[in-house]
């Protein structure tokens, strides 16, 4: 078994590396989209005019109520009917990013509603305009409250990025399947792939833990201290 694993790594490392690269690209870009979209949606839902807030709610419910794979297929296979043709990688990033945006909107909304009402009133009372109060008082506190949930989301996305396989993006799982079909050593290949995911997840969670620590302010962060 060990011998097989070393053999696969020695023989196929360029493919594994290419797969790793694509997995990282999908994860990083869709996460960034998810964070930006999620924060924007949460702010609209909390502070926006009622129709806009209702539209956000509908979006969140639609995304949460359908499988991510279906969303990916709609983007990849159905959008061309409307003249929008995306390459597999872009389609995967769009699907995962839009999906994550809906989930993160909920995390951020929770974080915003955890900020005491008095913070908002104090911000207005010194003469800040509403958008300034959001920018200088609400958002800096939102990050800090939402960080633990954001860490979870990053690790989810790392693993969900594998659905890009279904639209033929050569990411880790895709490469695993390919190498498996060449060598008939499926168990060994998927063991390697699994170990790569675990390593990435550990790195991600450690990185986010450091970020949390760096941003932590006495009295705000709701994180349970890590041992």
């Amino acid at each position: 078994m060990i011998g097989d694993i070393t053999y696969i790594i020695e023989e196929y490392w360029p493919l594994l590396l290419e797969g790793l690269k694509n997995t990282l690209i999908i994860t990083a870009v869709s996460y960034a989209i998810g964070v930006a979209l999620g924060l924007a949606l949460a702010l609209i839902r909390v502070y926006g005019p009622r129709p806009a807030a209702a539209a956000v709610t509908a979006y969140v419910e639609a995304i949460r109520g359908t499988p991510m794979l279906v969303q990916l297929f709609i983007i990849y296979y159905s959008l061309p009917a409307f003249g929008i043709v995306l390459d597999p990688l872009t389609a995967a990033i769009a699907a995962i990013g839009l999906n994550s945006g809906a989930y993160q909107a909920e995390y951020f909304r929770g974080a915003i509603s955890a900020i005491p009402r008095g913070q908002w009133e104090a911000a207005l009372s010194i003469g800040l305009r509403k958008w300034q109060a959001v920018r200088h008082v609400i958002i800096p506190q939102t990050w800090r409250v939402a960080l633990p949930a954001m860490t979870n989301e990053l690790i989810y996305l790392l693993k969900y990025s594998s659905i890009a396989y279904f639209v033929t993006v050569p990411e880790l799982v895709f490469m695993g399947k390919y190498i498996g079909s060449k060598t008939y050593m499926y168990i060994q290949v998927y063991t390697i792939i699994a170990m790569i995911y675990v390593a990435l997840a550990l790195i991600a969670s450690e990185g986010m833990a450091r970020l949390e620590k760096k941003l932590s302010i006495p009295g705000i962060s709701v994180t349970t201290p890590r041992q």
Partner: peptide
């Protein structure tokens, strides 16, 4: 509001800012 100060029962200091930054925020942004 910028011309009227307000002191709250529960202080409502900005939790993510130091004492100094709390006082500075209105001066720089408003």
């Amino acid at each position: 509001r910028a011309r009227i100060g307000f002191v709250f029962q529960h202080f409502n200091l900005f939790l993510h800012l130091t004492a100094l930054e709390n006082v500075m925020l209105g001066l720089t942004k408003v």
